[in-house]
Design a protein around this nucleic acid. Structure first.
Ligand SMILES: NC(=O)c1ccc[n+]([C@@H]2O[C@H](COP(=O)([O-])OP(=O)(O)OC[C@H]3O[C@@H](n4cnc5c(N)ncnc54)[C@H](O)[C@@H]3O)[C@@H](O)[C@H]2O)c1
Ligand SMILES: NC(=O)c1ccc[n+]([C@@H]2O[C@H](COP(=O)([O-])OP(=O)(O)OC[C@H]3O[C@@H](n4cnc5c(N)ncnc54)[C@H](O)[C@@H]3O)[C@@H](O)[C@H]2O)c1
Lengths: 257, 257
DNA sequence: AGGAGTTTGTGAACGGGAGAACAAACCGAG
DNA sequence: CTCGGTTTGTTCTCCCGTTCACAAACTCCT
């Protein structure tokens, strides 16, 4: 069932985004910005953006790195270093202009204009995602809801009809969709992923507990709520074990058969 | 509104789990295992667990690090190093016993018995979480659904009634709840978090787009779907910008005012 | 104008994780 | 019992990310 029929490049679907090479040793004559922002910084920019939006709504015109770092929940030195990758947008002795910095980060992330998004699998989670109003205010517009189950199709969710999954090619092309969300059961995830990629989607957010293989050039991010809970459980167990202070009778031996 | 009344220790709510010290230089006489598993490894253990469950269901008795790494989507060297933190559970020249390793990882994570969990905020997302059947098979049991809105209360979701948030203390105590899930709007998240912690919860999974401050000893993990999409958007933008091959007219200057 | 105070941007040290590579250990055949 | 093939566990090296610390740059007050 899971035997790989089509030879896909088993990309990690993790941090390593297959950089498009071009790190040639050749001459730096053309003055390409070539600003490779570290992945860890990219992951924090949206947090800064949210914090700046909050400050802006509260009427704050400027803020120091200390303030912004506090609102974002990070170290101020880390914040400054992160922002320095975008350029020198602050003023020494003063701080950052909230609106100006907010726009610069939004532009850097690419959310100054909306990204069309399709959601596949309109079950429990798909419904919640479709109804969520927060996406539209953060640079995303859900343009299609797809499901393979005929009983789901036709239903209206958040002003959008659930369409048959077969229409994926037409819809992706019509709306120029680059980002797809997978909220189907795990067994269907790889198949859905392949179809999305074939239709032209090059970025995927996967909620199904499954490892996706995608060709190079396609980014995958996964959100696994069970894993998050299990990480919490691990630390929780260590807390309570620390209370017992010894536990683990011998912890070795391990007889096995 | 967001002014910190009670002086909380603004903990990062990120990787740094305030280790309970005790890394004394003193005599190692009591033979404490003291196995500090790296955070990155802890985050991958649930993935291995899921992969092993899959292999087990498919009837596989043993597997090599290569196979398991493939199923988990990681490098085999990384997998072996991760597993070595738990102990030597493999057999050289043979591989790993699937059932045995599965149990060992489950025990290490702490999901050999169920963890009781409360969900706060039974809106779009809270409903989806409450109805999700995957948690129970992965070591978690949802014991209470809480909401502040009287119109939500009394509703039955997945065989569990939605209770008033005021009952949080009684429910947490009665079920010995250590893990709480926050699915309320962002403005309510800190307040809900404080109440949960006061009730005795020491691990929190936060879906609201807000930075939570918690006292030391409490772990917070956040899941922010907008951030995931924005990270994808950033890379997507760079892909299309790479196609244009130059873009960014001058990219410097930045006149401001 | 000059100086004190403030805050940014960045160089440098440091720590942790990723990956390659290899010795040790195990199995099975002969 | 020995030997070749296989796979683990671990060591070593490199790289990325975090954090400290400070010079440069700006404002404001005198
Ligand atoms: N609901 C949650 O809170 C939650 C939590 C963690 C993980 N997940 C994961 O998210 C995914 C969705 O969860 P859910 O609770 O919404 O499940 P669900 O069963 O309620 O919904 C799945 C939907 O996908 C559709 N579907 C199935 N196969 C399809 C295909 N090949 N193409 C298109 N659509 C298809 C189904 O018709 C259904 O509507 C699952 O993988 C689940 O493990 C969900
Ligand atoms: N729905 C999604 O797909 C999605 C996606 C990303 C992020 N989020 C975030 O998850 C959170 C929940 O989203 P949602 O769509 O379910 O929102 P929602 O408005 O549908 O549900 C929120 C629920 O929380 C309850 N609530 C409000 N204040 C409360 C309080 N003080 N105590 C207890 N309960 C309280 C409300 O009564 C409501 O039932 C939000 O913070 C949202 O930003 C949701």
């Amino acid at each position: 069932m899971t035997s790989p029929r089509s030879p896909r490049t088993g990309s990690p679907a993790d941090g390593s985004h297959g950089r498009h090479g071009a790190d040639g040793v050749g001459g730096p004559s053309v003055r390409v910005p070539e600003r490779g922002i570290p992945e860890a910084t990219v992951a924090r920019l949206p947090v800064y953006l949210r914090a700046l939006t909050g400050l802006s709504e509260r009427g704050t015109a400027t803020c120091s790195s200390e303030e912004l770092a506090g609102a974002a929940g990070v170290n101020s030195a880390k914040l400054r270093k992160d922002l320095s990758y975008l350029g020198s947008y602050g003023t020494r002795g003063v701080g950052y202009d909230v609106e100006y910095l907010r726009y610069q980060i939004a532009r850097e992330i690419g959310v100054t204009q909306d990204w069309p998004v399709v959601i596949v699998g309109i079950g429990n989670l798909g419904h919640a995602l479709a109804k969520y109003s927060g996406f539209s205010s953060r640079g995303f517009r859900i343009v299609a809801l797809l499901d393979a189950d005929p009983r789901r199709q036709g239903e209206e969710v958040a002003g959008l009809g659930v369409r048959p999954f077969e229409e994926v090619d037409a819809l992706v092309e019509r709306h120029r969709v680059a980002i797809g969300v997978i909220a189907t059961p795990a067994v269907a995830a790889q198949e859905v992923c392949d179809r999305l990629v074939a239709a032209g989607v090059t970025s995927i957010l996967n909620f199904a507990p499954a490892v996706l293989s995608v060709p190079e050039g396609v980014d995958v991010r996964k959100v696994d709520l069970s894993i998050e809970l299990q990480i919490l459980a691990y630390h929780e167990q260590r807390k309570t074990l620390a209370d017992v202070l010894d536990g683990t009778p011998v912890a070795s031996g391990a007889v096995r058969s």
